[in-house]
């Protein structure tokens, strides 16, 4: 989870480092902590530390973490030569390590030598059959090869053993959404909400899946989850506000002409529409007419 203050600090550090203001190590630590994916910046600033013998020795034992970080960033940028150099330094320092073995496997993956990568991972799994990271790499490899069905199968098998792995649940949910298997995706998001009941983004994603499935009951549940996402973000998540608007207008259309009991109370709808208009007035006044017209056509404001 990345908080608003943490993200702001990361961006501040990034501009500072990019403009030559120093603090490269702090920035790299922050990237690692927040698990952000910024390979080009990590590669540039990480190498500037690694190539400076004095700065490197100041890091102490953290030096090897940096080598690993830079190696992965280099693979992400397709700079396999740099990745190879980093990995050879690491394997000289830690011969026979599983973590370095995983990096070697990833290097095979990045260069497209899938059979070699498969073999490397199999060998590592023989030594430690319950290594989660290696099993995840195998799943990712199936995905990279376009073999989504196999990836789903592996993931399901993996989750039967490691049920508390949130990252894996999230990955499975995203794959199911990409396959338009919304019922299964909804199940995964339910698991995620159970793990992290206060994370608004899971509530939001669950609501979106339910809204996509449609039907009165699903829409009503979706509306509740959009509302809880708004609750957890203090109304600062525009996507949740829009979702609530769409849900309300869809429910209104379905229940049109029915008796009063099924109908939604108009209070929440107008409140959300007002919040949206207020937000746009403050942050993007140029887009305000567009928003008011849309909301008017959905009959949420008059």
């Amino acid at each position: 989870m990345v908080g608003a203050a943490e993200e702001a600090q990361l961006n501040r550090l990034e501009t500072q480092v990019d403009n030559g203001g120093g603090g490269a190590w702090e920035y790299l630590c922050h990237v690692r902590k927040l698990k952000a994916r910024r390979p080009d910046k990590v590669l540039k600033h990480g190498l500037s530390i690694l190539n400076n013998a004095k700065a490197r020795s100041n890091l102490g034992a953290e030096e090897w973490t940096l080598y690993e970080q830079v190696a992965i960033a280099a693979m992400d940028c397709q700079r396999l030569d740099i990745a190879k150099d980093c990995i050879s330094v690491l394997s000289k320092k830690f011969p026979g390590s599983t973590r370095v073995g995983r990096l070697e496997g990833m290097l095979f993956e990045a260069s497209g030598a899938w059979a070699d990568a498969e073999r490397a991972y199999e060998r590592l799994l023989q030594d430690s059959p319950h290594d989660q990271v290696i099993q995840k790499r195998k799943i990712a490899m199936a995905k990279a090869l376009g073999n989504i069905a196999a990836a789903v199968e592996y993931l399901n098998k993996y989750l039967e053993i490691f049920m508390a792995d949130q990252d894996a649940w999230r990955e499975l949910a995203e794959i199911y959404v990409s396959l338009q298997m919304y019922k299964q995706a909804a199940f995964c998001y339910e698991e995620l909400i159970l793990c992290q009941p206060t994370d608004p983004l899971y509530h939001l994603a669950y609501a979106e899946v339910l809204y996509t499935m449609g039907g009165l009951e699903n829409l009503q549940t979706a509306k509740k989850y959009y509302a809880s996402a708004i609750n957890f973000t203090g109304g600062k998540n525009t996507r949740a506000l829009y979702g609530l608007c769409l849900c309300s207008s869809a429910i209104n259309q379905i229940t049109k002409g029915r008796n009063k009991e099924d109908k939604e109370s108009p209070d929440l709808q107008s409140l959300v529409a007002e919040a949206l208009v207020k937000d746009y007035k403050k942050k993007a006044p140029a887009k305000l007419p567009l928003v008011t017209n849309t909301l008017k056509s959905m009959k949420l404001i008059s």
Partner: peptide, 30 residues
């Protein structure tokens, strides 16, 4: 408070355990 700036979640971390390398990074040489 869950909606204060310190606690408000704005984005999920990139799912780095499942990262794959066939993306547009290949086309943009560094």
């Amino acid at each position: 408070l869950p909606d204060s700036d310190d606690n408000r979640v704005v984005s999920l971390p990139a799912n780095l355990d499942f990262m794959i390398f066939n993306h547009r990074g290949r086309v943009f040489p560094s």
